[in-house]
Design a protein around this nucleic acid. Structure first.
Lengths: 134, 134
DNA sequence: TCCATACTATTACATCTGTAACATTTACAA
DNA sequence: TTGTAAATGTTACAGATGTAATAGTATGGA
């Protein structure tokens, strides 16, 4: 499993952008984030630079500008964060977590369907294992 | 919704202990954590003290010793962390997350059943809403 | 009573984070 | 060509975190 650098709260905002659209110049990022946050352009540039140092973000020099792009995928990060979440709270956490998700109504009908499918598959596998060991 | 103080990675270890068994004296905590980590007793005491400052942990003086206990429940913390997780990755995150959970095999058969129930309920609610708006 | 022990309290210090100011270089317009 | 704006680079600084050392205090045994 690839090692994901530790990304801080503020830095996630930058990553989110780059996942959505990359490569992006520093200015692209500044422009977009200036809308959503109160960060000064220099602040945002610091975040980008730190991400580069951490090797979470790469860049290509294009003339005088830098074009940034993510070096880690969103899925990898979700995975890493999930693992750390699990370590913190143990398996017992997922239930209240899912409940929170549901309550926040972030779940579309299709997403719910997909999740149910994942769980159904897991349940089937459990059953299979039980049968085998019998 | 109650405001959960920001608890750091290392501090979670202390919280986990206290959730499992509290009240506990500083020494209880030190003893247990010394097994799992390489932290010196003073390090662990610092963590406890910080948690007290943050009001994540309370204590009662019992003679010369302090008995510590959590002031926030595990469920509250899971909830708060989930929300922050959601903010970071958006609703799209839950699918790979659940997949990770399943893969790590942290899910018992009963847990899966419970999760499926939660989702089924959510799905039914969606359906109801759709019908109403028709 | 007085010291060793066990606890608690104070202080330290390097990194990481959030938040930015100040400085330098480059490129284009006048 | 030279000043100015835009881009990049360097430095700053306070608060949080990881990790602990040292100092003070209370308490029970010699």
């Amino acid at each position: 499993m690839k090692k994901i650098p530790k990304i801080s709260e503020a830095e996630w905002e930058v990553m989110k952008l780059l996942w959505k659209k990359s490569p992006a110049t520093a200015n692209d990022v500044v422009k977009t984030l200036s809308g959503k946050t109160h960060w000064k352009r220099e602040t945002i540039r610091t975040l980008i630079n730190r991400l580069v140092q951490k090797k979470a973000v790469g860049f290509k020099k294009k003339g005088r500008q830098y074009h940034y792009f993510p070096l880690v995928t969103e899925a990898e990060c979700v995975r890493a964060e999930t693992t750390s979440f699990l370590k913190r709270f143990g398996g017992g956490s997922i239930e209240p977590m899912l409940a929170a998700f549901v309550e926040e109504e972030k779940l579309s009908t299709e997403k719910i369907a997909k999740l149910r499918r994942i769980l159904k598959k897991a349940a089937d596998e459990h059953k299979k294992k039980r049968n085998k060991s019998r």
